[in-house]
Design a protein around this nucleic acid. Structure first.
Lengths: 263, 263
DNA sequence: CGGTCGCTTGAACGATTTCAACACATGTGG
DNA sequence: CCACATGTGTTGAAATCGTTCAAGCGACCG
């Protein structure tokens, strides 16, 4: 495989060929019905269909993109959840964000830049694959798509801003509450889960690496939130019993439900 | 002024009308000669010229955009430095990023979203003003510009990712070293300063609010870095004596000098 | 001159990390 | 089947990093 996004995982998974056998036509894109996503119209979907080169699948734990390489493809999440993280040389890891259906994966690749982060599947995932080389055609041929692309980049930037505020200003319990609410709401908006609860396997070690906390302190703070009856976060399930209480505990403002465009 | 980006500052500055009297033609854009910036070609500059509605000036301390409002204009930095920050309800402040010449200000405004942050001038600044309403024309009429726009959004996202890693994984001294290097290099790339030193007035309180540290601890860590002869950061000047040493102290990787497009 | 701003210092306190151990479930090879 | 390793969560105790409170200093300004 000449491609640099070799899906060999550092952690768990055994090697697995992305099976691009079946392929969902964009006209029947399952994401159309997500209330958190605003679908492109039929004409756009036809055009996207032509742009899309294939579909890829990865199992939980596999790496989709690796930090430091120049990838030749970009992706869109069709199904499943992934994380995006950066490793420092001494092994410290910062999880930068979670990726849900409709999200763009590896936008940096479009600019021929070295990736500054890796991407790993948190669940089994299906991705739409787009070739980098024809990426520039997008802007030329279909301005609305290009506009949406900028929109998506801006939206991701806003999410990172939120996380930044969290790491900079909130203490451990507030960060946890914030992240729980963030994930549950993103899950609900993208059809991964129903309101208030998200079934997703996240280890405490991953939570710690997202929030810049030690594993031990993450564990204790999680217990504290459970006692407060604000958030109950287990290995397989995140539940926020009282969304409003949790939001105000974490000092979250702003509308949770702005529908996002996707490609 | 019907516009919601009223430049009345919460902090210092007295009210000042943006004087759009003189206006630099884009063909003679002073940023052309910045080695850190890759200028649009002549054709593009002509088109940008038409898109640009005016120029605005703000003095140090003035607010350019205010969190929570829907702005009708977006800006580009022609000269000077600004900060972008978010306030929490209880008064905590997180500075999200610094803005240098060539940077886009208020991209969120383009999508009719409420701004999630405020923007304030750190020095006297000159901004190019673009109307939000004609923004969509950009994508339609000139794909390359639209492409650059996405590029800029992606670049800003990458910067936030860097800051996020800093807040999540680095201790106080490392964060300070990282920020100093970041600012000095951005300054050098955009012609604000010469290599190794940046003349820019930043209070320790602002540094603290950027790095998620208390004022007192910021002060002590700054002194420690001075004793280590890594970074000497005073109210008016940031100097990094040994760039390589500072970079490795802060565990920074990746190329500092990727030329950025601007508009 | 009083007042504000930015910086500095000391000391006590508290949040978070680190070290170390153990419990529990799962999977694997002998 | 057991023995063993591995991944995840939990707990206790000590150490460290960072915060908070409180005070003082010099510069600048009206």
């Amino acid at each position: 495989m000449a491609d640099s996004d070799d899906p060999k995982s550092l952690t768990i998974a055994s090697r697995q060929q992305p099976a691009s056998a079946d392929r969902v036509p964009c006209k029947e894109c399952p994401l159309i019905h997500c209330r958190g996503l605003s679908a492109p119209d039929e004409g756009q979907r036809a055009w996207i269909e032509a742009f899309k080169s294939s579909e890829a699948r990865y199992v939980r734990g596999e790496q989709v993109l690796r930090q430091g390489v120049r990838a030749t493809r970009l992706f869109t999440v069709l199904e499943g959840v992934l994380i995006r993280y950066r490793l420092l040389e001494d092994g410290r890891r910062q999880i930068v964000n979670f990726l849900f259906p409709g999200d763009l994966v590896g936008l940096q690749a479009a600019f021929e830049a070295e990736l500054t982060h890796s991407v790993e599947a948190m669940t089994d995932v299906r991705l739409c694959v787009f070739p980098r080389d024809r990426f520039f055609d997008l802007a030329v041929s279909h301005p609305k798509l290009s506009f949406d692309l900028t929109w998506m980049a801006a939206r991701e930037e806003a999410a990172l801003e939120d996380h930044l505020v969290s790491l900079g200003q909130r203490n451990a319990q507030e960060r946890l509450a914030y992240l729980a609410v963030f994930l549950v709401q993103r899950g609900a908006a993208t059809g991964v889960s129903r309101e208030g609860t998200l079934r997703l396997t996240v280890t405490q070690s991953q939570i710690a690496d997202m929030l810049g906390l030690s594993l031990v302190h993450t564990n204790r703070s999680l217990q504290a939130l459970r006692r407060l009856k604000l958030v109950d976060w287990t290995l397989s399930t995140i539940s926020v019993h009282d969304m409003e209480a949790a939001r105000s505990f974490a000092q979250m403002d702003g509308d949770p439900y702005i529908p996002r465009p996707y490609i």
